[in-house]
Design a binder for these strands. Structure first.
Length: 553
RNA sequence: UGGGGAGUAGUCUAAGGGUAGGACAGCGGGUUUUGAUCCCGCCAGUUGGGGUUCGAAUCCCUACUCCCCAACCA
């Protein structure tokens, strides 16, 4: 608590604690269950739960379920799962719908105070009389109807006596107000719809501005954090709570997170799902929490990222590279290493005995000795990566080429003698010799090799399908382009490789195990599509590759 | 041309009158049985113009640029 504040909201909280305005911190994460949570929500979750954690306060998970037309129980379920997976515990699990009766009662109170009225204007008429950015609005003809009449009408709205759209309850504020939100905003609309929790109990549903402040107030939220677009709503938030004379939390706005080469808009993500550009909300390419999970991102990495992106009030696009850094940084420490060959090229060790098999020792994680060692089988026929061989390599290519010697990781030095091709001239096999003196990978004569490559024993390797997951879009900001964002969907965002050859060790990995294929990247076992018959592996992120980078230029 | 916000290296973010700092990215080097990790170094910034001040990213004026608001969405 004595710590230097991490950002402007942290500063406000520390000041409030110091001044005695509050003696505790109560925050909330208030998602609408109308879609899956994405990386932007992860930032908000980490912020709200993190602040509560830091100051020994509380954070509620509260579903802002005031619009039955868009909300579904499926989304509630996914959101609960996502928050838990990220590793946070809520103080209470709540729903705005828990407060429907209380909100209704407060609305009656507002009418009694002559600060709200039932309006019978149609949606078109309301729009027409709201004015515009530079034109003031006009009063509704029902604005000054007697309180009793509004009381009666509102009750009958609730009782379902009127059709959708025929009436609204509006706050009586100021149709001339320069802030459009203050021009007699609607606080209740008629909706004959079934709600995921309250069924058909209600025919009227509160609007966001009415509901949200009340939810915060009822829960005694100290700091109500939301994104910048609600800055214009703060005067209304305050007006309602002041008008009712109830506890008023402080709303504080921060800039939402944007990340390059992807989208953080629930609506647009839903389009990608519904139009079949991805396989679902949790497609490994999606920036949803469930998508990132399936791709192999760890909760720790996402939390570290949320911490590193910072918090301020300006619109920004965070570099995807930062997210990738956080993922690598965490997985480097935690993920076991194994070997896998994505594009296999057969290698025959011509001087290695036909039926011999040796068990060689390999380190599971050089960053963590606790993770131990394992045995890997070596034999006469192996697979190596196709791009670890070049027929006519440049000098700086530290891998296999005719006459070149390399080290097979944890095994032997081998030298390439013959290149076997098919009739089309494609390299299909290499004939190499090994140096029996170099077992384990070091030469007694002190001879050094420039390259070390990964391999698997042909006889022992198992097949796997590997999905190379890449950025979803071809441009950094798909919404800032001349054309619709659909034009920038990356056609190679997920390339599936069949018949990859991997260490048999991988078969023992449970779904969602995160591991490294040495020299390639971090991978995970797909939580849905993989089984013991058909191993399906997603590439989370590549390793940094300065060789590839050099060649790109 | 109504209202509300915001402008600091390529990106994100500190510094609130006193040496513009950190992270990511990039570049260079060292170690290395992963061209990974790790270590060292470098590059690079206050939107423009005035003013106040010994001293301004910070205070004042002004210009400019960008974002949000006209759902019975949240």
């Amino acid at each position: 608590m004595e710590e230097k504040p991490k950002h402007f909201i942290d500063t406000i909280i520390q000041d409030d604690l110091k001044s005695g305005k509050h003696d505790t911190v109560i925050t909330r994460f208030p998602p609408e269950p109308n879609g899956y949570l994405h990386i932007g929500h992860a930032k908000s979750i980490c912020l709200n739960f993190g602040l509560a954690e830091t100051y020994n306060g509380k954070c509620n998970l509260r579903f802002d379920d005031t619009n039955p037309i868009k909300e579904e129980a499926e989304y509630v379920k996914s959101i609960i799962e996502d928050v838990q997976w990220l590793g946070f515990e809520w103080n209470e699990l709540l729903y705005a719908s828990d407060y429907f009766q209380a909100m209704y009662d407060f609305a009656q109170d507002l009418i009694q105070k002559d600060k709200a009225y039932v309006c019978e204007l149609t949606p078109d008429e309301i729009r027409a009389t709201r004015g515009s950015l530079k034109e003031p609005g006009q009063n509704s003809p029902h604005r000054n109807r007697p309180v009793e009449e509004s009381v009666d009408l509102f009750q009958r709205m609730k009782n379902g006596e009127f059709p959708n759209g025929s009436m609204t309850l509006r706050a009586k504020i100021d149709m001339l107000h320069p802030n459009l939100n203050m021009r007699d905003p609607i606080i209740y609309r008629i909706l004959h719809a079934s709600h995921h929790r309250t069924g058909t109990d209600w025919c009227v549903y509160p609007m966001y501005d009415w509901a949200h402040g009340l939810e915060d107030s009822i829960e005694k939220i100290t700091h109500s954090l939301c994104t910048l677009e609600f800055e214009d709503h703060r005067p209304l938030y305050d007006w309602f709570l002041l008008a009712l004379g109830v506890y008023k939390p402080q709303q504080i706005e921060f800039a939402r997170l944007n990340v390059g080469y992807t989208l953080t808009s629930k609506r647009k993500l839903m389009e990608l799902v519904e139009e079949g550009h991805v396989t679902g909300w949790d497609d490994p390419r999606m920036p949803t929490i469930s998508g990132m999970r399936r791709r192999g991102f760890s909760p720790e990495a996402i939390r570290a990222f949320s911490d590193k992106v910072g918090l301020a009030k300006r619109d920004t696009v965070t570099d995807m590279a930062l997210l990738e850094f956080c993922v690598r940084d965490d997985l480097n420490k935690s993920a076991a290493r194994v070997m896998g060959v994505l594009n296999p090229l057969k290698v025959v060790i011509t001087n290695y005995p036909e039926d011999q098999v040796e068990e060689l020792e390999a380190i599971n994680n050089p960053e963590d000795p606790e993770m131990g060692k394992r045995k890997i089988s070596f034999s006469r026929e192996l697979y190596v990566e196709q791009n670890d061989f070049m027929e006519d390599p440049p000098r700086k290519f530290f891998r296999l080429g005719p006459g070149r010697e390399v080290r097979l990781r944890y095994a032997y030095f081998i030298t390439c003698n013959d290149v076997i091709k098919d009739e089309d001239g494609n390299v299909v096999e290499l004939h190499c010799t090994y140096d029996p003196e170099t077992k384990g990978g070091s030469a007694p004569d002190g001879r050094r090799v420039k390259g070390t490559i990964h391999w698997v024993s042909a006889e022992h390797a198992i097949d796997a399908t590997v999905r190379l997951v890449d950025r979803l879009f071809t441009v950094e900001d798909p919404l800032a382009q001349e054309n619709d964002f659909h034009n920038y969907i990356n056609p190679d965002s997920m390339v599936e490789l069949k018949n990859c050859k991997v260490e048999p060790e991988v078969k023992s990995f449970k779904p969602e195990t995160r591991f490294q294929f040495e020299r390639l990247g971090y991978f995970t076992i797909d939580r849905w599509d993989s089984d013991t018959e058909d191993l399906v592996i997603n590439r989370t992120v590549t390793l940094r590759d300065s060789w590839a980078k050099k060649n790109r230029k």
